[in-house]
């Protein structure tokens, strides 16, 4: 399956196409701020302004605030998968947000961003999202394709 560091690098490149704050490095992503802004772009009715307002922008080096942000993000995403997409996320794709917030764990971060990707290619505005992905470098597109296949295939891999 996918090399998690390569997955993270490619998905960071994809996230940067949204041009949201705090999205310059993998470490930046661990605060959850960029991911929350991307989700708000993907589906502003579900991940709405009120929800976005609960994400602490100044989490910086405070790992407890980061973990708190990441928990809110993961909870809302899983509800989105269930209520909007009608898709059950398998256990192997569930990230440990404590490891992300506290240790900056790349493997768990890759899983979290992989879930964001799944929202993007399945939501109401997926046409726009997929076309944006198709403008990326071919090598990045390949990793993105594999990540989608891995996440959204019926049987756990």
């Amino acid at each position: 399956s996918l090399d998690k560091a390569e997955l993270c690098d490619s998905l960071l490149t994809w996230l940067q196409t949204f041009q949201v704050p705090s999205c310059n490095s993998k470490y930046d992503l661990t605060s959850g701020v960029a991911i929350a802004h991307v989700l708000h772009r993907i589906d502003p009715s579900w991940f709405n302004e009120t929800w976005l307002g609960r994400i602490k922008e100044e989490s910086g080096a405070n790992w407890r605030l980061k973990v708190s942000n990441l928990k809110k993000i993961l909870k809302s995403m899983l509800e989105y998968y269930h209520d909007v997409l009608g898709h059950q996320v398998s256990d192997e794709h569930l990230p440990d947000v404590n490891l992300i917030g506290e240790m900056g764990d790349i493997t768990e971060l890759g899983k979290l961003v992989q879930l964001v990707l799944g929202c993007a290619v399945s939501c109401e505005k997926k046409q726009e999202q997929i076309q944006q992905i198709m403008t990326l470098e071919e090598s990045v597109q390949h990793v993105v394709m594999t990540a989608i296949q891995e996440l959204l295939s019926k049987e756990p891999s």
């Binding site: 898709h87 399945s122 939501c123 109401e124 997929i130 992905i133 390949h142 394709m145 959204l152």
Partner: peptide
């Protein structure tokens, strides 16, 4: 040139995959 062919094949795989995603009913990711 084999590399050219491989490149073209790669592009085809990607295009087919993403177009298949586009044609899926919204909200049905699997």
């Amino acid at each position: 040139d084999p590399n050219m062919k491989a490149g073209a094949a790669n592009e085809g795989v990607l295009a087919n995959f993403f177009n298949s995603l586009l044609s899926k009913k919204t909200g049905a990711p699997g």
